[in-house]
Amino acid sequence: MALRESKNGIGVEVQTTRQHEPALGLLLQILEVRAFWEHCATFLMRPVWRMSASGDGHPVLVLPGLAAGDASTTLMRRFLKSRGFAPIGWGQGLNLGLREGVLERAHDRLRELHREHRRKVSIIGWSLGGLYARELAKQSPEMVRLLISLGSPFTGDPRETNAWRLYEYASGHRIDSHDFHGRLRAPPPVPTTSIWSETDGIVAWRCSFETRRDMAENIVVASSHLGLGAHPAALFAVADRLAQPEGHWEPFHRNGWRRLVYGDPHKTRLRRGGHPSGTRDRRGASMNCALRAE
């Protein structure tokens, strides 16, 4: 799927390949039941939350995934608040896709936080919310301090996801329609972290792989998709990234005990045969970045 200019603004032009990766298998879908235990584990670990990095009080805008609202990010925001950050939800109810006005209202929220705190805002987007976060950072990089996405499908094929039908039902338009806004392929011009799991049962990890460039990185955790925004390892990494001083960015390190918790993203890609955007599939057709449902 590629983006093109139209009379009505920026649209999406679908460029299909003869063969693409199949949707994720049944076993990974079943393993999504882990999400309940991942939420419980983080809640039960509240006494040791203080072991994670502490913040400087700067605002953090948290955007939910498809068919979810601010309730889904409550645990994450509670954790961040306990660590000295100032998290806030997106305030738009359920995320039902890129409907009219969604990005505009999210941008208004970003602008309000920037004006109220007189500081740059960090943005966290879970799944589809991560696509919004990337677009906000591209629209107003002067307001954004750091961008973190969690299992967000900013590259790949639309129908590799196990949620594209849900996206069509929730949003009211086809996944290959021309209603989407924003240049998904263009990287955000701010420090960017993509957190994903090899065993994500909703979004294939290949579609969350951030290409190598300055101030961009991948962090790999062993989590379900539905529990990614509440997984203890993911939240520890989020706090670590947010705690960096404004204007000073260093990549996440995996030294010591972290090697037991966080995977090596580049070894994962080599071992599992991931295709970075712009490479070729088995038949030589171009692999284009695509908006995926979740």
Rank of each mutant, 00 (worst) to 15 (best):
residue 213 R to F: 12
residue 61 L to P: 06
residue 72 S to E: 03
residue 222 A to W: 05
residue 160 E to F: 12
residue 107 H to K: 06
residue 154 F to A: 03
residue 28 L to R: 11
residue 231 H to Y: 01
residue 257 W to Y: 07
residue 179 D to S: 09
residue 291 L to W: 14
residue 200 D to P: 09
residue 160 E to L: 12
residue 247 G to I: 03
residue 10 I to C: 06
residue 246 E to P: 07
residue 49 W to V: 03
residue 36 F to P: 04
residue 133 A to R: 00
residue 138 K to I: 09
residue 19 Q to F: 11
residue 255 N to K: 15
residue 20 H to A: 13
residue 204 A to P: 08
residue 284 G to F: 03
residue 113 L to Y: 01
residue 17 T to Y: 04
residue 260 L to G: 13
residue 222 A to C: 05
residue 56 D to V: 13
residue 58 H to N: 06
residue 9 G to Y: 06
residue 55 G to V: 05
residue 227 G to K: 02
residue 19 Q to W: 12
residue 241 R to F: 02
residue 196 W to M: 12
residue 243 A to L: 07
residue 142 E to M: 02
residue 244 Q to G: 01
residue 88 I to K: 11
residue 83 R to F: 04
residue 203 V to C: 11
residue 39 H to N: 08
residue 61 L to T: 06
residue 214 D to K: 14
residue 123 I to N: 07
residue 55 G to C: 04
residue 162 N to A: 07
residue 267 K to N: 08
residue 172 G to Y: 09
residue 215 M to G: 08
residue 195 I to S: 08
residue 94 L to Y: 02
residue 23 A to N: 07
residue 158 P to Y: 07
residue 246 E to Q: 12
residue 8 N to Y: 10
residue 128 L to V: 01
residue 249 W to R: 08
residue 51 M to Q: 11
residue 40 C to E: 12
residue 247 G to Q: 03
residue 245 P to G: 10
residue 288 N to E: 15
residue 134 R to T: 00
residue 135 E to V: 07
residue 156 G to C: 06
residue 94 L to H: 01
residue 266 H to C: 01
residue 208 S to R: 00
residue 262 Y to T: 11
residue 205 W to E: 06
residue 247 G to T: 11
residue 225 H to V: 02
residue 58 H to M: 04
residue 221 V to M: 05
residue 294 E to H: 08
residue 97 G to P: 05
residue 246 E to A: 14
residue 191 P to H: 11
residue 262 Y to S: 00
residue 39 H to A: 09
residue 84 G to Y: 02
residue 165 R to S: 13
residue 18 R to W: 04
residue 33 V to P: 02
residue 54 S to K: 15
residue 181 H to S: 15
residue 280 R to I: 11
residue 144 V to D: 06
residue 66 L to T: 05
residue 16 T to G: 11
residue 271 R to I: 08
residue 222 A to R: 12
residue 129 G to A: 01
residue 166 L to D: 08
residue 55 G to L: 05
residue 260 L to R: 13
residue 26 L to V: 13
residue 235 L to M: 09
residue 204 A to I: 14
residue 212 R to K: 15
residue 269 R to Q: 14
residue 34 R to N: 10
residue 148 I to W: 06
residue 245 P to H: 09
residue 64 P to V: 04
residue 76 M to S: 03
residue 130 G to W: 00
residue 235 L to S: 01
residue 96 L to H: 04
residue 170 A to V: 10
residue 95 N to V: 02
residue 103 L to W: 00
residue 170 A to L: 15
residue 142 E to K: 14
residue 116 E to Q: 15
residue 151 G to D: 02
residue 61 L to D: 11
residue 266 H to N: 10
residue 272 R to T: 14
residue 165 R to G: 12
residue 39 H to K: 10
